[in-house]
């Protein structure tokens, strides 16, 4: 198992995702002899997980069953332990495309936070790219570095515990893309520029507040960035439902000719059933503004 490469069988030391039900999943560190409690009972790693195929159905001790999934950055994003506010897949997907990430890209990121975006970046730039990620909170930096090791992606990433606004990314002239998710991104725009390749590259800044966007855009323009563009992307979920709609009864219509199969229809089944979708009652209506820019050749 690795976050950048699929494998078929669950092995000791893997991180597996237990799928308990719709929108209910949990990550599990697979360990010989260990047990994991779920609401359907215990899962014994040695017998239930190790050696089984990813995607298998596992019966828990109380008789309920779950599916064991191979980890992906997207599953990790929904199951990871939150140490900070995190980026979700809708924004991550947009960021990945707009930063033009692909295998081999060199990327600088700050802050690392809980590593939600970092995992997605690593998946996309493997096997030949590299991620330099900067986190000013020491415990968080250490924790995420440990996770990268557990997920077998540590060879693709360098974690630095420093303040990007003061100390930059620790590398110069190497990055194809820079991502900023910090409280005052405008203070890091200069460092972002110097960390990027002289041939140019792409930058993205994520900010929840429009005032941050305003200042960041000014700083980007001052530093000579081009194609500055701010956008917002939201996910809309459509829950599939079967609904029954009653039909109104206007009484017999004397002007209408009697339908040929009028008798066959029971009068009390006066409703139609349709498959349709409904929106969830509440959805995230704002995550943050994404500002993209291109650094020209310098």
């Amino acid at each position: 198992m690795s976050f950048v490469e699929y494998s078929d069988l669950i092995q000791d030391g893997d991180v597996a995702i237990i799928y308990l039900g719709h929108d209910s999943m949990m990550p599990v560190k697979v360990q010989q002899g260990a047990q994991t409690q779920t609401r359907y009972g215990a899962i014994r790693h040695s017998t239930d997980l190790i050696g089984q195929r990813y995607g298998s159905k596992v019966t828990c001790s109380k008789g309920g069953w779950v599916h064991v999934l191979h980890p992906t950055p997207e599953l990790w994003t929904i199951t990871l332990p939150h140490r900070t506010q995190i980026l979700y897949t809708t924004d991550i997907a947009t960021i990945t495309m707009m930063l033009e990430l692909k295998p081999g890209s060199i990327v600088c990121e700050s802050g690392t936070g809980s590593g939600s975006l970092s995992h997605a970046i690593l998946r996309t730039i493997a096997p030949t790219g590299h991620l330099h990620t900067v986190e000013f909170h020491q415990q968080r930096a250490e924790k995420v570095a440990e996770e990268f090791r557990e997920h077998h992606v540590d060879h693709l990433v360098t974690v630095r515990n420093q303040d990007v606004c003061k100390d930059g990314f620790g590398v110069t002239g190497v990055a194809d893309a820079v991502f900023l998710d910090i409280p005052s991104p405008w203070e890091a725009v200069g460092h972002a520029k110097t960390t990027m390749k002289k041939q140019g590259g792409r930058l993205c800044s994520f900010s929840p507040c429009i005032e941050q966007v305003q200042r960041t855009c000014e700083a980007l323009a001052d530093q000579g960035f081009e194609e500055i563009s701010t956008l917002e992307v939201l996910l809309r979920v459509h829950d599939v439902r079967t609904v029954s709609l009653p039909l109104p009864d206007f009484g017999p219509d004397p002007s209408a000719p009697a339908p040929p199969d009028a008798d066959s229809k029971a009068p009390n089944s006066a409703s139609v059933t349709i498959k349709t979708t409904t929106p969830p009652r509440e959805i995230p209506g704002h995550t943050g503004y994404l500002t993209f820019a291109t650094k020209p050749r310098t």
Partner: peptide, 30 residues
């Protein structure tokens, strides 16, 4: 919706989700 219904009937899949994205661009000027 039809795909969703069919997959539910047949089994063999989890985490089914029907979605679309909403995209808005901004003019950012002082």
């Amino acid at each position: 919706i039809e795909c969703y219904t069919k997959l539910k009937e047949q089994g063999g899949t989890v985490s089914l989700r029907l979605t679309d994205t909403w995209l808005r661009h901004y003019q950012v000027l002082p």
